[in-house]
Design a binder for these strands. Structure first.
Lengths: 218, 218
DNA sequence: AAAATAATTTAGTCTTGCCTAAATTATTAT
DNA sequence: ATAATAATTTAGGCAAGACTAAATTATTTT
């Protein structure tokens, strides 16, 4: 049985290792968990003791197969609970993260699997992220971006890749807000910029922007 | 924000104070929480600091109004989650306690109230215990006993008051098991013993036994 | 390649919540 | 009413998980 802190470190390492194939640095974990590097170092030693990570001093951590499965089981719970909160309890999909952060630590495989069934075995959470199976297996597919849609298709805007304030202001000015539906109307040939339809307005955005917007197909 | 341990101590004091109108003893709490008296003493000081209990050295603890409300909010969550587990996830009502012990500590009033609504504002949990309202108000009614039923009425057996092994053996021998439906068929005049109908058999039990069986009406 | 800078680890401390053993206070029995 | 027993508290310790400051190792710059 892992402690809450151990679980959070594993999860953090999992998420951070998606954007880098070498070891995950102590600092990035500390930053991710709002804690200090020295605290992370201690935890890395502990997780290493438990064969959940490979930890080489000064060179960060990598999940072992066991660690990866363990992380994915927690992530499975997180995402299932998010689906529950949105689909059954009518939460907005941007309100559920904090609550799911708590629920993901509830220990009961039976509960998780019954919840899965109750939700009719969903494959993705409300942010479009895939839900691992009971054994902690997941097919990692790159998240769908607006630029991946074809002409005529519609997606719901569920997240941003680069969340720099410049980009967020850009979205704000254009009234592109989380949760809104975006239809791809047309693509310019010369610069691949997209003409898109929002609720009632149409506008044009660059490929660069479009590939910064995560969406789920509708 | 209370720690998990603080919440558990409050809950324990609440439950123990139902069976005694003076202060709840240190030892009974320690016993209830599978911990040691000395640990409880420390926690009582802390809860007292926070105005959740009135604690007089060597004379146990009593909940303040604030402490009582706080305990009842936790109990509300516990019982709502139990209803969820049984009604929505198809758990057996005797499997849910341990899981609800974890879920009751999830912090989000919004979640609790949305869950309440989703469950259609249940008034009792699967064991027949009443569910406090959002403000932590509860109408304490003595739990329904088999001896409270009238002739012709049926109840589902949901718990025992005195759980001495003698009594449990008595039940076992008579094949009276948790969850079974019991119909009151007739009452003897001279000793008030009850003729009851189980699934397919009939038998007679004393008033004493009948008032040891908690039930919910059907 | 050495110096400067950044990242990481180590050492030492703190808090929470638990423990055991000893001391103190309440209760019960004679 | 006092002695014996039981309950409770105090004192002192321990492990987990966090922190700061100092020491060490990596990386970057010149």
């Amino acid at each position: 049985m892992l402690s809450l802190s151990e679980e959070n470190h594993l999860k953090s390492i999992f998420h951070l290792s998606l954007n880098s194939d070498s070891g995950v640095s102590t600092n990035s974990i500390a930053n991710n968990l709002n804690t200090k590097a020295s605290s992370v170092t201690e935890m890395l030693k502990k997780l290493s003791e438990k064969s959940l990570i490979v930890y080489i001093k000064y060179h960060g951590a990598q999940l072992t197969e066991l660690g990866r499965k363990t992380a994915l089981k927690i992530i499975r719970k997180h995402r299932l609970w998010e689906v529950f909160l949105v689909e059954k309890l009518d939460f907005k999909w941007d309100e559920v993260h904090e609550i799911a952060e708590q629920l993901e630590h509830i220990q009961s495989e039976k509960l998780t699997n019954k919840l899965d069934k109750f939700l009719n075995f969903p494959t993705h959470d409300p942010h479009g992220d895939p839900i691992p199976n009971p054994a902690g297996f997941i097919k990692i597919t790159p998240k769908l971006k607006l630029s991946d849609l074809g002409i005529g298709e519609t997606g719901k805007f569920v997240g941003v890749k680069d969340s720099s304030s410049a980009f967020l202001k850009y979205l704000d000015k254009r009234k592109i807000s989380l949760g809104c539906n975006i239809k791809v109307l047309h693509q310019e040939e010369f610069d691949q910029s997209l003409h898109i339809g929002l609720d009632d307005t149409n506008l044009t955005i660059s490929v660069k922007s479009a590939s910064n917007l995560y969406i789920t197909k509708i």
